[in-house]
Amino acid sequence: MAEGVTPRVKVPKKAEAGEVITIKTLISHPMESGQRKDGDGNVIPRSIINRFTAEFNGESVIDVKMEPAMSTNPYFEFDATVPEAGDFKFTWYDDDGSVYEEVKSITVG
């Protein structure tokens, strides 16, 4: 697990049923590209988050395949439809097998 990985997610606390809301996510991660070399000329191995998903009550909002060209501390902004009250679940998958999760609840009405 990369050190000190912290997710940061912006989801409104409530919405109207069927409303489209904007979500923003940030997560601290070096996203080591595998292209850099250390001081001795050795390639620093790739170590990135390779997938990000957002689900609402178990149904997919967005599923992103991520490559080394994504910047350090990856950022996403996207829209979601909120059919009912429930939980957004955000998941980041690290090359090293670690999984980082964040859950945000939203009420309707």
């Binding site: 489209v20 809301i21 904007t22 689900e55 609402f56 149904e59 997919s60 909002v61 967005i62 599923d63 992103v64 395949k65 991520m66 490559e67 060209a69 994504m70 996207f78 829209d79 979601a80 439809t81 059919p83």
Partner: peptide, 10 residues
């Protein structure tokens, strides 16, 4: 990257 949109994409 590739963005795959699910049923609840707004």
């Amino acid at each position: 990257g590739t963005f795959n949109f699910g049923p609840l994409a707004g």
